[in-house]
Design a protein around this nucleic acid. Structure first.
Length: 847
DNA sequence: ATCTATGGCAAGCCGA
DNA sequence: TCGGCTTGCCAT
C-alpha cells in the first residue's frame, strides 16, 4: 500500500541538499511531516509522510478514539496476532525481560501519554509511527539529505581520515556493538554544519502600568513595535504610529523603519517578514512575544489561517518555519552549568547577554509606553540584536550546540532546544530500542521486575548511598598531584555492562556476578543498550574530541568544533547516570543508579588503598578524584597503570598544586598551581549570597596567597592579609561601605507563601517588599542587609546605613576568613588584634 | 508542564 | 540552651 504511492504534496519535491530540522504532525491531514531546510534557497520545505503508516489518535473520548482509529484495528498485523502469541514473539526478540511499548505512538519528540492499552501495544509491535517513524526511515535530525521526486536519501560525507585511523586503533578489543556505535557517532558528529539563515524577533507592548507585564492571553494592549535583526545584520523595525505627540523623528541610519497607522497592518507586515525566514529566534517567545502576537492578531480580527504561527501546548512554532526560543535553551540547567560554566546566574536577556556577550539590555529611564519613537526603536532593536548575537557569538557556538545535541538525541531542533537532558537521553535510548525492533518498557514494568534500592543513603530522605568523600588532612601541603577517573560513572556503565535489562537478570548463572557493596548482580550473557550507547559516547569524547579540542596545532574553526562536540557530550554523559535514579525518567531503574554509585565507591576505595600501599599519602578525595602528597612521576604512573590493569578504568593526572590548603571541612579547599592560578572550592567567600564587600576582601586575600611559593613566604603574606582584614573591619565600623556592598543576595526557592516550616532571613526581607506592593516570584534574587532590631534584616531598598548591625557583619567576616586561615595555621584574632575583638567572638573556632 | 543524582557546609529557625 | 530541621549554595 502506501509506500508506493507518493503523497500529492511530495510530488515534484526535489532538493539538492536538505537538513532535516524538525518532525511534526498535521492534525487535519492526519499525517506526520518533516521540516527540511533547503540549502539552495534557505527555505523550509515540508515533506509529508507517504509511507502508509497509520496514525494512532488519542482522544479523551474512548468512543471517538475507537472510531478515529478504526483503520488500525483492521491492520493485518494486528488482526492476525493473538495476545499470547504476541508476548512470546516479543520475548524472543528481547533481552531477558518482557518489554512492552506503552507510550503515545504519536509522541513526536516524546510527549508521554496516559492513554495506554493493549491495542496500542500490539499495534506498535507491528507497525511504527511518528517518533519511531524517522528511525524507520533511517533519518537523523540535522543531517543532510537529498530529496529527489519526493524521496529522501542520505547525503554521504567524508569522514576525516585521521579520525578513522585513530578510532580503528582505539577500538581494538571492543565488542562489535561498541565498535558500530562509535563509528556511527563519529559519522553523525563529523557531518557538515548547516549554515542557517535566521532572524531574531522582539516586540514591545503598551502597558498602562509601567511595572506590570502585559498578559499575552488577554492581549488587550496594542503592540507598539516589532523589531527584526537577522544574522546578516539587517535591522528592520515596524512602529505603530500613535498620532499626536509622537512626531516622526530621525532614526539611526542603518535601521529600516516602517510606520503603520493600523496595528493590524503592522502585524501583517511582520508576518510577511517572518515568512521570509526559515528560522525565527526569540528570547521567551513561547510565553510572551509570539504568544502575544497570536492573541493580539485574533483580537484585531484576523483568522488563524492568516497568522503564520502554530500554537502548541507549551510552545509556538511557525508554519513553514522553525522557532527556537533561546530562553528555554539557556534556562536549561545542564546548559547553564556544564556548557556555560555558570557564567550567567539569572535567566534574563540582560544577565545572559552581559555574561556571554559583555552587553546587556539598553538602559532607559522611561517605560516603553512613554518612549519617543527613536528611543523605542533603539530599545526594541537592542533586544532583537542581543537575541541574535546569542546565537552567533563565538562562531555560532549556540547553533552548533543545538545541532550537535539534536544529532545525538535524535530530537529535532525545536524539541531539543526546549527539553531537558533527561528527555534527550530518553529519546536516544528509545531510538536504539526501535532500531533493534525492541519494544519499550513502561516505568511500572521496570519497577516491578527490578525493584528498588538496597543501600541506605547517608543523607536522610535520599534513596540510596552515593559517593565517598575522603576525610581531608588539615594543613598546608606542598607538592600535590590530583588524579581523577575520566568520566567515572559513564566508564562504570560501560565496563560493568549496566542497564535496566542486565541488572538483576533472570539467569541463575549470573547471580554470582555481584556489584560490590550491594546484593545486585549483573548479566554476563547480553550487552545492555545504555551500556553500549553511553559507553561509546564516552569513548568518543575521551579518546577523540577532548584531546582534539586541546590540540593547538589545529586550525581555529576545527578546534572550535571539537570543543563544541566535547561540551555537548559532556552534558549528556554527566546526566547519564543520574537519570536512572530520577522517578520522572521514563526508564527509571533505581538499582542501576545505585549500582553505578556503589561501583564508584569500590573503584575509589581500591585506588586509595593502592596509593597507600605505594607509600603515597592520600590527602583528600571526592567521588572520582584523589589528592596525593607526591609529584613523583614514577609513582603516579604506576598508579595509573595499575588502575587500567586492575580496574579497567582510566585514571588521569589532572593537575599539580604548588600547595594545597585543607581545613577539616570536606568539599572545601584552596589549591595554588605552579602558574599561580588558584582553585577555590566550596569556601564561603566565593558563594553567590555573600556580600560584595566581603567577596572583594576575600579575593584580595586569595591574590596574596597565590603569590606564595614556599613555606617561608607565608610570613610576609600573613602581614599583607592582616592589612586587608583590618581595612575591611575599619571600613565596616566607620560605615564606609554602601548598602549595596553590604547586601546578601539570596534566591527565592519558592513563592513567599511557600515557606511554612521556617521563615529564613531572605523571606523576611521579601515579605517586607511584598507589603510595598513589589511582586516576588520564585527565582528572584533578594538583596537584604542585616540590621539591628526585631527582624534582624531589611531589603536594601528599605534600609538605611545607620541601622546596619556591624557586630553581625564582623562575625561573618571572621567566619569567612577563618575557613582559609585555619588551614594555613593563622589565627583570625591575631590578624585583627584580640583586644578589639573579644566582645564579638561567639562561636569557637573549629579544628 | 517540567524535573539527572547524592554528599556536605553555614546559617538561621524553632520547639523541647 | 541545645539539637534537629530547613534553606540555599556548592562539589562532584
Amino acid at each position: 500500500m502506501g509506500a508506493e504511492a507518493l503523497s500529492q504534496e511530495n510530488q515534484g519535491l526535489n532538493i539538492g541538499e536538505a537538513y532535516l530540522l524538525s518532525v511534526g504532525y498535521d492534525g487535519e491531514r492526519r499525517k506526520a511531516f518533516l521540516k527540511l531546510y533547503d540549502t539552495s534557497d534557505d527555505r523550509i520545505k515540508i515533506w509529508y509522510d507517504d509511507t502508509g503508516h497509520l496514525p494512532y489518535c488519542i482522544s479523551k473520548d474512548p468512543l471517538e478514539e475507537l472510531e478515529m482509529n478504526e483503520g488500525i484495528a483492521k491492520h493485518p498485523g494486528l488482526a492476525k496476532m493473538e495476545r499470547a502469541e504476541r508476548y512470546d514473539a516479543l520475548r524472543d526478540r528481547r533481552l531477558d525481560v518482557v518489554i512492552i511499548y506503552a507510550k503515545d505512538p504519536l509522541a513526536i519528540g516524546g510527549r508521554p501519554s496516559g492513554c495506554i492499552r493493549d491495542l496500542v501495544r500490539a499495534w506498535e509491535a507491528n507497525i511504527k509511527y511518528a517518533e519511531s517513524y524517522i528511525y524507520d526511515l533511517g533519518l537523523v535530525p540535522c543531517m543532510p539529505y537529498r530529496v529527489s521526486n519526493g524521496r529522501l536519501s542520505p547525503m554521504a560525507h567524508e569522514l576525516p581520515m585521521d579520525a578513522v585511523a585513530h578510532l580503528e586503533a582505539a577500538l581494538e578489543g571492543e565488542d562489535e556493538d561498541h565498535r558500530r556505535a562509535v563509528r556511527e557517532w563519529i559519522s553523525l558528529l563529523e557531518a557538515p554544519m548547516p549554515k542557517l539563515k535566521r532572524v531574531a524577533l522582539d516586540i514591545e507592548v503598551y502597558s498602562p502600568i509601567a511595572t506590570r507585564v502585559p498578559d499575552p492571553d488577554e492581549a488587550e494592549h496594542p503592540i507598539l513595535c516589532i523589531g527584526f535583526f537577522d544574522n546578516e545584520g539587517r535591522k528592520r523595525i515596524l512602529i505603530l504610529d500613535r498620532g499626536e505627540g509622537f512626531e516622526a523623528e530621525p532614526l539611526p541610519g542603518d535601521l529600516e523603519a516602517s510606520f503603520f497607522k493600523s496595528e493590524a497592518d503592522m502585524l501583517r507586515a511582520a508576518f510577511d517578514i517572518i515568512r521570509e525566514y526559515p528560522i525565527v529566534l526569540t528570547f521567551n517567545g513561547d510565553d510572551f512575544d509570539l504568544n502575544y502576537i497570536w492573541h493580539r492578531a485574533q483580537r484585531l480580527g484576523m483568522g488563524k489561517g492568516d497568522i503564520p504561527l502554530e500554537v502548541g501546548r507549551e510552545s509556538i512554532s511557525i508554519k513553514n518555519g522553525i522557532h527556537i526560543d533561546l530562553y528555554k535553551f539557556f534556562v536549561n540547567k545542564s546548559m547553564q552549568v556544564y556548557a556555560f560554566r555558570q557564567k550567567y546566574r539569572e535567566m534574563t536577556l540582560d544577565d545572559v547577554g552581559m555574561a556571554l556577550l559583555g552587553e546587556g539590555k539598553r538602559k532607559s529611564a522611561a517605560s516603553v509606553s512613554e518612549m519617543s519613537y527613536s528611543e523605542l526603536a533603539a530599545y526594541c532593536m537592542k533586544d532583537a540584536e542581543l537575541t541574535m548575537r546569542l546565537s552567533t557569538y563565538d562562531d555560532e557556538l549556540v547553533m552548533k550546540l543545538i545541532v550537535v545535541l539534536s544529532r545525538i538525541s535524535f530530537l529535532g531542533i525545536e524539541d531539543v532546544s526546549r527539553q531537558g537532558v533527561s528527555n534527550w537521553i530518553r529519546s536516544m535510548l528509545y531510538r536504539e530500542h526501535r532500531r533493534r525492533g525492541y519494544l519499550i518498557p513502561r516505568p511500572d514494568e521496570i519497577l516491578e521486575l527490578k525493584g528498588t534500592t538496597a543501600t541506605e543513603a547517608t543523607i536522610k530522605g535520599k534513596k540510596y548511598k552515593g559517593a565517598i568523600v575522603v576525610e581531608p588532612k588539615p594543613g598546608v601541603h606542598f607538592g600535590v598531584a590530583v588524579l581523577d577517573f575520566a568520566s567515572l560513572y559513564p566508564s562504570i556503565i560501560k565496563m560493568w555492562n549496566l542497564g535496566y535489562e542486565t541488572i538483576l537478570c533472570p539467569h541463575e548463572e549470573c547471580r554470582d556476578n555481584l556489584v560490590p557493596d550491594t546484593p545486585h548482580w549483573i548479566c554476563r550473557k547480553r550487552r545492555a543498550i545504555q551500556s553500549v550507547l553511553i559507553g561509546s559516547l564516552r569513548d568518543v569524547r575521551v579518546k577523540w574530541y577532548k584531546p582534539k579540542s586541546k590540540d593547538k596545532t589545529l586550525p581555529e574553526p576545527k578546534r572550535n568544533w571539537y570543543m563544541v562536540v566535547q561540551d555537548a557530550l559532556k552534558v549528556i554523559l554527566n546526566a547519564s547516570y543520574g537519570v536512572f535514579g530520577a522517578e520522572t525518567f521514563s526508564l527509571y531503574c533505581p538499582p542501576v543508579a545505585e549500582a553505578t554509585a556503589a561501583i564508584g565507591r569500590y573503584v575509589i576505595r581500591r585506588a586509595i588503598e593502592k596509593a597507600k600501599s605505594l607509600g603515597v599519602e592520600v590527602l583528600y578525595g571526592d567521588t572520582d578524584s584523589i589528592f596525593l602528597g607526591t609529584t613523583d612521576q614514577a609513582l603516579l604512573n604506576e598508579l595509573v597503570r595499575w588502575a587500567k590493569e586492575e580496574l579497567g578504568m582510566e585514571l588521569e593526572i589532572d593537575k599539580y598544586y604548588r600547595y594545597l590548603a585543607l581545613s577539616s571541612r570536606k568539599k572545601n579547599y584552596l589549591g595554588v598551581r605552579e602558574d599561580g592560578s588558584v582553585d577555590i572550592k566550596g569556601l564561603t567567600g566565593k558563594k553567590r549570597h555573600v556580600p560584595e564587600f566581603l567577596k572583594k576582601a576575600f579575593y584580595d586575600m586569595i591574590q596574596i596567597l597565590s603569590e606564595v611559593r614556599s613555606f617561608d613566604e607565608f610570613n610576609s603574606a600573613r602581614e599583607r592579609i592582616k592589612r586587608i582584614v583590618r581595612e575591611c573591619y575599619l571600613k565596616l565600623k566607620n560605615r564606609e561601605y554602601s548598602l549595596e556592598e553590604l547586601a546578601f543576595n539570596v534566591m527565592m526557592g519558592k513563592s513567599p507563601e511557600g515557606y511554612t516550616k521556617t521563615t529564613p532571613q531572605h523571606v523576611k526581607a521579601a515579605r517586607l517588599l511584598s507589603q510595598r506592593g513589589i511582586e516576588i516570584k520564585p527565582g528572584d534574587l533578594i538583596a537584604f542587609v542585616k540590621v539591628t532590631g526585631e527582624l534582624g534584616v531589611k531589603p536594601v531598598q528599605l534600609a538605611s546605613k545607620n541601622e546596619i548591625d556591624t557586630e553581625k557583619y564582623l562575625e561573618y567576616i571572621s567566619s569567612t576568613f577563618e575557613q582559609v586561615l585555619d588551614a594555613l595555621g593563622i589565627e583570625f584574632d591575631e590578624l585583627i588584634g584580640v583586644r578589639r575583638l573579644e566582645s564579638f567572638f561567639g562561636p569557637a573556632t573549629r579544628g
